[in-house]
Nucleic acid binder design. Structure first.
Lengths: 350, 350
DNA sequence: ATGAAAGCGCTAACAA
DNA sequence: TTGTTAGCGCTTTCAT
C-alpha cells in the first residue's frame, strides 16, 4: 500500500518553486504559463501522483451544477412518470456533491409546448441536459443550440441519428422485438398471434415501436414460420371500441390465442382479457407501468418486458454530473439497457 | 422558485447573535450548548431553511471515508468475482466525494482465513463494512464487534437472523426457487425434473440454496403435481464423474428431460449437455457467471436467473457512504434485488 | 508569465 | 457554555 499522504497543489508548488496560482493554471490548461513551467509542473504532478481534491475545488468555485431533464408530462401511471421518478435517484452523495436536477416538461402531442420547454431549459443554462427525442426536427434544433453553448446532453428512450450527444441510455429496440416474440411463443411454433396497435395520428413524432415490430416479425419468420400474424388498431380513448374490436377479431379467428403490443399500453386490454380468460393464451407487453404490473399479478398478462426508464434517467444524470464535475466522458456512447423479463413470479421486487 | 441564496452557518450565527462554533455544536448535537441557545438556533435553522454544505464540511474534517468489503476470494469466473466487480461501481462522483473502498478477502472454505480477514478489517477502522455472512458463528462475532465500535455494516447475498445491520441487499431466496420452477416448466405440468446438487462438505457454512430448493418444490407441488423430481449429487472437481452420473440417471429415466441447479454452477453440466442435445429439454440455473452466459448463448442452458451481485455490493457501499457522509439511514432495511430472467435473447446487454 | 492573498463554508482546538 | 481562530485544498482576482 502506497503512503496515503495526500499531496496537494502546495506540495507541487513547492517542489517546482512555482506558486499555487501557476500550478492551478497548468492543471486547468488555462494558459498564461511558460512552456518550461508547464512541463516542470506536469512532471512533478506525475512524479508525486497528485490527485485533485474534489471538495476543495467545488467549494472554491462555489458553483452548483444543474442538470435539466426534458421529458413529456406524465399522467399518473404512464411511462413518463416512471422515467421522471429516476430524477431523484442519483445516489445521494452525488447530489450532495452539488448537483441539482430540474424537470422540464411538455405535452408530447404539442410541438409548441416542446419548443417552450426547450427555451426554458436554455434559459436555465444547465451544466447538462437529458432528453427524449420525441420530436425529430425540434430535437435537432435544440441540440444544435446545446452544442453551440457547450452544454452536453444525453438521450434516453430512443436515439436520433445525430452524433453530438454525450451518451444514450435505452433499450435495443430491434432486439426487444425479438425477445418479445420468443417470450410469446415460448420457443414453439404457434398457430397465430394478434398484434394490437394504437392508431396514432402522426404528431411529427418518431415511433420507436417500428423497430421493435421489425424484430418481432423477423423472429417469427425464422422460428415460427407457420404462425399467422394479424394487426388490429385500437383507440386508447375508446374502451368499448377496444372490446368490440377484440371480440370481432377473435370471433373470426378462433384458432388465434396470443396477443402482443409493442408500446406500453397493454393494460388497455385488461378488461377484455379479464372477461375472456383462456389458460392457453399468452399475452406479452412492454414496460412496467403500474397497471401493467397489476395485470401481470392478476395473470391477464403473461410477460412484460421492462427497460427501467428511471434507471435510464438516473444514469444519464450521473453521466452528465461526472462530466460537469469531474470532466469525465463515458467510455461507451451508446449504453443499451438490459431488457428485463417480468412474470408474475418476479414482479414483486422490481 | 425560492431564492437560492445559500444560507450558511454564518447567517444563522448572526441571526441568533451566537457564534459559528455554537451553531456547529447544535448542528451536530455535540452538547455543551445551553437549552436556550439550542432552541433558538434550531428555530432559525428551520426559519431560514438552512442546508449544510457538504463539500465544506468534508473539506474541513479532511477525513477520507473507507468502506471495507469482506467477501470470499474469487477464482476467475466465479460468483464472487462478479460481486467484487461492484466495488468500483459506485458512481464516480461518490468516490470523488472522498470514499475509498477496500476489498478484504478470505477463503470461503477456511474459517481461519475468515477470522484473519475480520481482524484486518477491524484494524483498518472503516466507516462501514459490507459482508456476506458465510460463516454463521463468526459473522455474529464480528458484527458484535462492529456494533461495539459503532461501525455500520451491510449484508449482501444472504442475511442472518440478527438485527444490527444497516441494510441487506440480496435476492429473495424462497421466491427465487418458485420463479425457477416456473421457468423450468413453462407453466405446464411436466413428466419429470432432475435437480443436480453439489455435494458439500459442511464447512460450518450456511447454505443459501436450501430456501431456494424449498420454493422450487412448493411450486412444483402446486403447479406440476404430476412431476417426478429426482436429486443427483456431483463433485465439481470431477468432470468425468459428472458425465457418468448424468449418463446413468438418464439411462434409467428416459422420460425425464429437464434439469435444474440451485447454485451458480450450472456451467459444470455444459460438456454433458453439449454431447446430449435435446430440443425438448429445458435447463435452468442461477447467476450470470461468464461460463453460464456462454451456455445460454450456445443454447445448452435455457434460462438463467440473475441477481446482480455487483449491484448488491454497489448498493451496499453506497448505503454505507450515505450513512457515513450524510448520516442517512436507508428507508428499508431489507432491500430485495429484482430477480433477472436471462435467455439467449437478452443476455447481451446484461 | 507569475505570485500573493483573500476567500469558499465548515470544523476543531483553544480561550475565555 | 460560548466565542475566536486557524486552517482544509483549491480558485480567482489583482498586482507585479
Amino acid at each position: 500500500m502506497a503512503q496515503n499522504q495526500k499531496i496537494t497543489i502546495n506540495d507541487i508548488a513547492q517542489r517546482t518553486g512555482l506558486s499555487k496560482g501557476t500550478v492551478d493554471r497548468v492543471l486547468h490548461n488555462r494558459g498564461e504559463v511558460s512552456r518550461k513551467s508547464y512541463d516542470r509542473v506536469m512532471e512533478v504532478i506525475r512524479e508525486l501522483g497528485y490527485e485533485p481534491n474534489v471538495y476543495a475545488s467545488l467549494l472554491a468555485k462555489g458553483k452548483k451544477h444543474l442538470v435539466a431533464v426534458l421529458i413529456p408530462t406524465h399522467e399518473p401511471g404512464s411511462f413518463w412518470e416512471l422515467a421522471a421518478s429516476g430524477i431523484d435517484k442519483p445516489a445521494d452523495p452525488v447530489t450532495a456533491v452539488g448537483l441539482e436536477t430540474v424537470l422540464f416538461q411538455y405535452d408530447q402531442y404539442d410541438i409548441e409546448s416542446f419548443r417552450a420547454a426547450c427555451a426554458k431549459v436554455l434559459e436555465a443554462n444547465p451544466s447538462g441536459v437529458v432528453l427524449a427525442p420525441l420530436f425529430q426536427g425540434e430535437t435537432e434544433a435544440v441540440t444544435r443550440q446545446f452544442v453551440e453553448r457547450g452544454i452536453p446532453y444525453c438521450f434516453i428512450d430512443s436515439r436520433p441519428d445525430s452524433n453530438g450527444y454525450l451518451a444514450y441510455f435505452g433499450m435495443p429496440l430491434y432486439k426487444s422485438g425479438y425477445l418479445c416474440a420468443d417470450q410469446l411463443t415460448g420457443g414453439r411454433d404457434i398457430p397465430g398471434a394478434l398484434i394490437v396497435r394504437v392508431r396514432r395520428d402522426r404528431y411529427q413524432q418518431s415511433d420507436p415501436t417500428v423497430n421493435r415490430r421489425a424484430g418481432f416479425l423477423d423472429y417469427m419468420l425464422e422460428n415460427a414460420p407457420g404462425c399467422k400474424i394479424d394487426n388490429v388498431f385500437i383507440d386508447p380513448n375508446d374502451p368499448d371500441g377496444i372490446d368490440a374490436i377484440l371480440d370481432g377479431y377473435f370471433a373470426e379467428h378462433p384458432d388465434v390465442k396470443h396477443i402482443v403490443m409493442f408500446n406500453s399500453r397493454i393494460h388497455l386490454l385488461v378488461p377484455w382479457l379479464t372477461a375472456h380468460p383462456d389458460p392457453e393464451r399468452r399475452v406479452v407487453g412492454f414496460d412496467n407501468l403500474k397497471a401493467n404490473m397489476e395485470a401481470l399479478r392478476a395473470g391477464t398478462v403473461s410477460v412484460l418486458i421492462g427497460q427501467r426508464p428511471d434507471e435510464q434517467v438516473r444514469l444519464a444524470v450521473e453521466a452528465l454530473a461526472e462530466h460537469a464535475i469531474l470532466g469525465k466522458t463515458p467510455d461507451r456512447k451508446d449504453q443499451f439497457m438490459h431488457m428485463d423479463i417480468l412474470t408474475r413470479y418476479n414482479v414483486e421486487d422490481y
